[in-house]
Computed example of a mutant assay.
Amino acid sequence: MKKKIITSAFSNLYTDQRIEKVCRTLYENGYEIELIGNDWNGAEEMQRPYPFSRIHLASKSLKTAYFEFNWKLYHELKKRRIKIQFFMPTISMRCTPIILLPKN
């Protein structure tokens, strides 16, 4: 059974090469990857070999956009009834890898 990894990033998914490199490497090594970002600074058309989605943000300032993104991400994961097994926020909160397994 493939392990599923959901990665979230506040940065622009289209231009952030770090996120693309990590997700592509995991995908190529057999992991089921899903990337969740946001549309705060635009949502350019993208093509990836793994699924991705963007959370709509209404905030106009960066100060409130971080909070809104994390709040909506939490509720998105809760709506999917996913149990969080590992959560590692980074210092800047720009990239938050989350490894998840379905709820038992």
Rank of each mutant, 00 (worst) to 15 (best):
E34A: 09
Y66H: 07
I91E: 08
R18M: 09
L77P: 00
K3E: 14
E76A: 07
G30I: 02
A43K: 09
R80S: 12
D16Q: 00
M93G: 02
N41C: 06
Q47F: 11
D39N: 13
E76L: 09
I5D: 01
K78I: 02
S92E: 08
M88W: 13
S8L: 05
F52W: 10
R48A: 14
F86S: 12
N104W: 00
H56A: 15
W71V: 05
I84P: 12
L62Y: 10
N12V: 01
C95F: 09
M93T: 11
K72F: 07
I98G: 05
P89T: 04
F67E: 12
L35V: 11
E76W: 07
V22S: 11
M1N: 11
K79E: 12
I19L: 10
E76K: 12
A65R: 00
K63T: 12
K2A: 15
R94I: 06
T25E: 01
T25F: 03
W71F: 15
F69Y: 07
K78A: 02
L26P: 00
T25G: 01
I6Q: 05
F86R: 13
V22A: 12
K2T: 10
K78T: 07
M1L: 15
V22Q: 11
K4I: 10
F52Y: 11
W71S: 15
A43Q: 10
I36K: 06
L35D: 09
G30Y: 02
T96N: 00
R81W: 09
K4R: 15
Y14P: 03
R54E: 13
T25L: 03
K79Y: 11
N12I: 01
P102S: 06
G42W: 03
L35M: 08
L13W: 06
R24W: 06
I82M: 14
G30R: 02
R18D: 08
G42C: 08
D39H: 01
T96L: 02
F69I: 00
T25A: 04
K2D: 06
A58I: 12
E68K: 07
Y66G: 08
E28Y: 02
K4T: 15
K60A: 15
Y14V: 08
I6A: 01
K83A: 14
E68D: 06
R18H: 08
I36V: 11
E32T: 14
V22G: 07
Y66M: 03
Y66D: 07
C23Q: 00
M46H: 08
R24V: 04
I84A: 03
E45R: 12
I5S: 00
K21G: 05
P97Q: 01
C95G: 00
L73F: 13
K3M: 13
M1D: 12
K72R: 15
M93Y: 07
P49I: 01
H75V: 04
S59V: 02
F67W: 13
